[in-house]
């Protein structure tokens, strides 16, 4: 069976990581688009949330799809991590990294875990708020808490770090590497993570700093 062969090969696994990574980035984009309503007003955000929840089947399917993608990304990530630790690991008395700025690539599994932790807390939190509180209020409630917000910002930093290797790595895995475009790709690899960090971080900061007090 070729799909089995494909996903059990080293390159196949990498491609699964890249495809699921790409889908997760696309999800983040739509999530960011929706959340942009926060900056308009609580009403706008609540309208958006209500509209979304008026389509429960879509939300359910979307959520399940996202869960599957996430599980693929995590499952294959862990598999690769364990395999690579067995094949590579700390096998020298002195381990020297020749490549500068290898912090992001070295810490991929750990930033990944942090992001997972964030997702669990984030999803659990917003699905299990007080029954009478609207989502738009819940956001304010949670993020006005300094430590909660700080955790959010910290998680976004992890995400940015994860993407600062992941985005380029994804394109490399897709076979996109050409001297003509590599400069652009390098810039994009800074811009994309920075965008998510700034955008989501701004939401947290908005409430954390008290700017969103009148929200």
């Amino acid at each position: 069976m070729w799909p089995i062969k494909f996903i059990s090969s080293s390159i196949g696994k990498k491609i699964i990581m890249a495809v699921s990574g790409l889908l997760l980035i696309l999800f983040l984009c739509t999530h960011a688009l929706g959340n942009a309503a926060i900056f308009v007003s609580s009403h706008a955000f609540q309208t958006y949330a209500n509209a979304l929840h008026s389509l429960p089947v879509v939300v359910l399917l979307f959520g399940l799809g996202l869960l599957v993608i996430l599980l693929f990304h995590i499952g294959f990530g862990i598999n690769l991590f364990l395999q690579n630790r067995a094949a590579g690991g700390n096998r020298y008395a002195i381990n020297t990294r020749v490549v500068k700025n290898s912090f992001a690539s070295k810490t991929m599994p750990y930033t990944g875990l942090l992001i997972l932790l964030f997702i669990i807390i984030h999803v659990f939190g917003f699905n299990n708020g007080p029954a009478d509180m609207e989502v738009s209020q819940l956001v304010k409630e949670y993020l006005s808490n300094f430590f909660y917000s700080l955790f959010y910002i910290f998680s976004f930093c992890a995400l940015a770090l994860h993407l600062s290797h992941g985005f380029w790595s994804m394109l490399q895995t897709f076979g996109i590497n050409h001297p003509r475009y590599n400069n652009g790709i390098a810039k994009l690899t800074l811009i994309v993570p920075a965008f998510f960090l700034v955008f989501f971080g701004a939401i947290a900061l908005y409430f954390m700093s008290g700017l969103g007090a009148s929200y």
Partner: peptide, 29 residues
Amino acid sequence: GNCTNERECEAVCPKSISIRNIARLNREY
């Protein structure tokens, strides 16, 4: 092991073989 695009290989290669070749292999595969 599996490639995770760490680029160390390219950095130490005595013949400067580029990881562009790895991208090409990914595509080919």
